[in-house]
Design a protein around this nucleic acid. Structure first.
Lengths: 249, 249
DNA sequence: CGCGATCTTGAGGCAATTCAAAACTAGTGG
DNA sequence: CCACTAGTTTTGAATTGCCTCAAGATCGCG
């Protein structure tokens, strides 16, 4: 019983992945904040971006590195991390295509967090100054960016609340629900989280140790709420998880 | 020994405090994001704001309340809170004159956190729609607001890191340093944090219980790093605290 | 002076961590 | 095709940092 299944997640190849030229424009035009811009503007903006590929596991930059680049995920997933002196780290965010990260507007000369490729990656990048110029040139874009950053602030506040007042069990339930909403795809196993997700990853998101994450996952599995294996998790009973997460259990 | 001193913090009166008419304009023009605007624009913006007073302890709004108002602190201090079903709460931020809060741009129809007057208060308020109109009318303002929100996101990420990987002791050291940088005034007792600050407040900021906060404060006091009494704390040895906070101890 | 609120301190308990070892998985090459 | 191996996951036992519960001390105010 409790047989572990073969991974249903389709992993990207691990070689560097460059975006094709037309893909670039397509990605840019799909970005929520560049929508409704005239084609000419998109062309101009496209000029300012450079593409860059990364292998899975590679670091894009480290906290403390000097730099002012802004990145946009075209393909793949990026882990945004912070580590303390003791080496323990948190995952602040898991970025998917369309998300931006790096030097946010009005930031100092150095990166405050670490960015790592979770999968093979294609990024579009632009200097902070050039990005600011775009924002100044196209005010509607600035408003869109503001909306995105404000939404992220709310998400961060939610995380702070979880870390402060909730148990490990509830934090992990919350994170599974968030990930499923962001990356979930219906499969035979349940709502599969489409990203290679180790126990360590989960632990870093929930602010617990990998062992605790594993114990909680086992528990959820025994309850029949999820299915999971190596580097993947699928939700089978979202309602039950939500009930637990929201104290309605 | 360890005699407790009389509170050196000057507490505001507890009655509702309304801003004088000219104070309003002065406050608005002092706001970082309305600077460099022509006087005429300031006048127009001023029209859109309404003033509102609150007693110390009063709630401005609760999480879940429907509403779309944006608030700017003119005088006093505001606690931004989130509570869970069990009643435990976190303080997300302590807002001082010039800070805004409430319905951030592009937000749903309800408040996600709770705002409470920590002191007698004078607020300026504007509807989310009107604020958005201002941002659309004056693009430089939108950029300024973006900078502020981005900075808050960084601060929130820092807090997440603290809560995830640091001990109660270090978290409290961090918070004292942050508060001192924001509200500190040099006094004979040391760098005094100019706000009524109970152990409960500290506990809510650090994500610990009031008892733990008290124990840590006692410890810091014995080490001679801080002085403290009822509702106040002053830093005497910032360096030592920073060394502890940054793992250089 | 006495009351209510704040703060301190102690003792016991518990959730989560640490340390450690075993079980499992997926990919590798014989 | 199967055994081998490196990485991942599970599980156990002991430890600990923080919480809970509770009493007592202290402060500031009317």
């Amino acid at each position: 019983m409790n047989k572990r299944r073969k991974s249903p997640v389709h992993f990207e190849m691990t070689e560097v992945h460059l975006c094709s030229r037309d893909l670039r424009l397509q990605i840019l035009s799909t970005l929520p904040f560049f929508q409704r811009l005239p084609q000419s503007a998109l062309e101009a903006i496209n000029q300012s971006f450079t593409e860059k590929g990364f292998d899975s596991g590679e670091y894009i930059y480290f906290a403390g590195d000097p730099g002012q680049q802004l990145y946009v995920v075209a393909q793949g997933r990026v882990r945004l991390l912070r580590a303390n002196a003791g080496g323990k780290q948190v995952m602040l965010d898991l970025l998917v295509p369309g998300d931006f990260f790096g030097a946010l507007p009005g930031q100092k000369q150095e990166y405050l967090d670490t960015a790592q490729a979770q999968t093979a990656l294609c990024l579009l990048t632009i200097s902070g100054d050039d990005f600011r110029t775009i924002l100044e040139t196209y005010p509607p874009v600035a408003l869109k960016v503001l909306d995105v950053v404000a939404a992220r602030l709310q998400a961060a506040h939610h995380t702070i609340q979880l870390l402060s007042v909730e148990t490990a069990e509830k934090r992990i339930a919350h994170i599974l629900l968030t990930l499923a909403a962001k990356l979930g795809e219906p499969k035979s196993e349940g709502l599969l989280i489409q990203a290679p997700l180790t126990r360590d990853d989960l632990a870093e998101m929930a602010g617990v140790t990998p062992e605790t994450a594993s114990r909680v996952i086992s528990q959820f599995q025994k309850a029949g709420w999820i299915a999971s294996g190596r580097q993947w998790i699928a939700l089978k009973d979202e309602g039950a998880l939500r009930a637990l997460a929201e104290d309605r259990a």
